[in-house]
Design a protein around this nucleic acid. Structure first.
Length: 578
DNA sequence: GCCGTTTTCGGCCCGACTGTTTTCAGTCG
């Protein structure tokens, strides 16, 4: 998985943190942070770029290009090593404690010799911090609470879980008489694959009762802060919820602001400044007159800045603002573009719903076509047999004569450790669609794993590689494969890569979709549903594809059925390429 | 350290909340 871009970004971030702790100029710190973000989101592999090309990356200037070059060539940077020598290693870890920033981390180091979280705990226990300038008993107590909470790890949670919590909170707040509008914002609205905290925005002319009601919600474990327009609470599950109230005329600007990302917001504000405008959560204002020129709707704010409305899923400060300015922002795929689902399971293998129920749900969801892709015999625990598969095919053909979506009989093969697959080529030719996935042996060496995936991709009847990296959000990391090779082969052979919509998978993720697009890869946004309810997860997959800037044309299950069938007749594609 | 339809120098996003201060610094999002 290791891409040089990620290593360089990590190097730059370490630089930024060490600079901040050692009292470096704030704007220099931010320059490093911005460069780290630019490098991480840059489509090209940094290690393959010449020095002049490094300099051309936005927010990377001559100085940082030189340091990046040094890092790529030698694996280290002299100046960074010097900085490391000056700053004790533990100090950086202090920055992860909420409420302790670079200035105070430096203060406790210089005045109390604290260099690690353990030192900090000891000092807190002995009440030594309250003696420092700017500190008191309260700030010491708060820091102690923050350290305890950080230790009991209120970790990031998956998209699906956070969405459920947020929707229950909205149900509680919406009926309050003072509430005019309420929506979730933040990374949840951007549909990131994991969520650190939940941001909720309320439009109201009477915020006080709402703020009080938030502190009294049954899920609240502790109130972190409670002001007249902003309240932060910690839920019993350790999830932080921030609720902010603005007046209705500021709704759009506030929604924009609280949706983020931070990098996206900063870019918009810089754009505003250059136009003599000032953007805040209250609206877009003329600097000279302080007159509000936009704010009630997001679209107005973007339009006044000369931009089209940008999907929340694209707002990562990863080039979307520049692309929007130049009119080159792609029109990304939407849920409404999807005509069908190409990866689902029934109770014949590890699904929980019978075939008929899944098909009925697909019909209710408005699908034009629907593939059933139960597991194949080599995933032994699923007890699939050739006879069962053929019997299922007959039932599907019968059901297909009824009203509802066109039914495709497919299967999800198991890619063996050597890259071989279930069944022989002739039998596989009988399926309408074939998905192939890795389900075990994740720890093979990179070259073995790469060859394994390539063999499956090259197979004449494999149409889709399921959950290509096998990562589990917050759990298992992605398998170590040469993705550039995989992307090249997938594009060449007309094999789609899946964007698996299960919230614990979201695989490929948005970043990889964006990289794969550069190779001309096509995607299948699929639910991998094992139950009727999971068919609804497709919206998570769509959001993930959007994060990767995928358009309708990039996604094969937006195609009309006849066009999809042409894509699935893989050998024709290969012939066309030649 | 980066960047330029106001700039190759002088800027660099904006505001809420907390706690310690009597007017502001630090942190966060």
């Amino acid at each position: 998985m290791a891409r040089s871009n990620d290593a360089v970004a990590a190097m730059l971030l370490e630089f930024a943190e060490l600079l901040a702790i050692s009292g470096g100029p704030p704007y220099k710190v931010r320059a490093y942070e911005k460069a780290a973000q630019a490098v991480e989101g840059h489509p090209a592999e940094l290690a393959t770029l010449r020095s002049a090309e490094l300099d051309e990356i936005p927010n990377v200037g001559s100085q940082l290009a030189r340091k990046i070059r040094e890092f790529l060539d030698t694996g280290s940077v002299g100046e960074l090593d010097e900085l490391r020598a000056r700053v004790p290693t533990g100090l950086r870890s202090l920055l992860t404690i909420p409420g302790l920033g670079p200035r105070r981390a430096r203060q406790v180091y210089e005045e109390l010799g604290i260099t690690s979280p353990d030192d900090l705990l000891a000092a807190l226990h002995e009440h030594r911090l309250r003696e420092l300038r700017g500190w008191g008993a309260r700030s010491e107590d708060n820091l102690a609470a923050a350290v305890r909470e950080a230790q009991s790890a209120g970790e990031r949670v998956r998209l699906g879980l956070a969405l459920g919590v947020a929707e229950r909170l909205l149900q509680r707040l919406r009926p309050l008489p003072q509430v005019q509008r309420v929506e979730y914002a933040g990374s949840l609205r951007r549909m990131r694959d994991s969520i650190g905290d939940i941001d909720i925005l309320v439009a109201s002319d009477d915020p006080e009762p709402i703020m009080r009601a938030v502190t009294e919600l049954p899920v609240v474990e502790r109130v972190i802060s409670h002001g007249s327009t902003r309240t932060s609470v910690l839920t019993a599950t350790g999830l932080q919820v921030d609720v902010r109230v603005v007046a209705p005329p500021s709704w759009g600007a506030a929604l924009l602001y609280f949706t983020g990302s931070k990098a996206h917001n900063i870019q918009l504000r810089e754009l505003a400044l250059r136009a003599g405008l000032k953007l805040s959560e209250y609206g877009l204002f003329e600097v000279e007159t302080d007159r509000r020129v936009a704010g009630e709707r997001e679209e107005e704010v973007y339009a006044r800045l000369g931009l089209p409305w940008i999907e929340p899923t694209l707002r990562e400060g990863a080039g979307e603002v520049e692309a929007a300015l130049h009119g080159t922002l792609p029109e990304v795929v939407t849920r409404a573009d999807l005509r069908g689902d190409l990866h689902t399971h029934t109770d014949l293998t590890d699904g929980v719903a019978p075939l008929r129920d899944m098909v009925a749900a697909a019909a209710a969801a408005g699908h034009e076509y629907f593939a059933i892709t139960d597991h194949a015999p080599l995933l032994h625990m699923q007890r699939m047999t050739t006879e069962k598969a053929l019997a299922q095919r007959r039932r599907i053909r019968e059901l297909d004569r009824e009203a509802g979506p066109a039914l495709l009989h497919g299967t999800e093969l198991n890619i063996q450790p050597d890259g071989s697959l279930d069944w022989d080529t002739e039998f596989l030719s009988g399926f309408d669609i074939v998905v192939a996935s890795v389900h075990s042996h994740f720890d093979q060496p990179r070259d073995v794993l790469t060859a394994r995936l390539l063999r499956a991709i090259e197979h004449p009847h494999v149409n889709v590689i399921g959950h290509p990296t096998t990562r589990i959000v917050g759990g298992r990391s992605a398998i170590d494969v040469d993705l550039d090779e995989v992307f090249r082969a997938a594009a060449r052979t007309g094999t789609a890569l899946e964007v698996n919509s299960l919230p614990e998978r979201l695989d490929l993720n948005g970043e990889l979709v964006r990289r794969a697009r550069h190779f001309g890869v096509r995607f299948a946004v699929s639910s991998d549903a094992h139950s009727v309810a999971q068919l609804g997860n497709l919206s998570f997959g769509v959001a993930t594809a959007q994060r990767g800037w995928a358009t309708r044309d990039d996604v094969i299950n937006t195609y009309p059925l006849d066009e999809l069938r042409r894509f699935l007749a893989k050998h024709d594609h290969a012939a066309a390429v030649r």
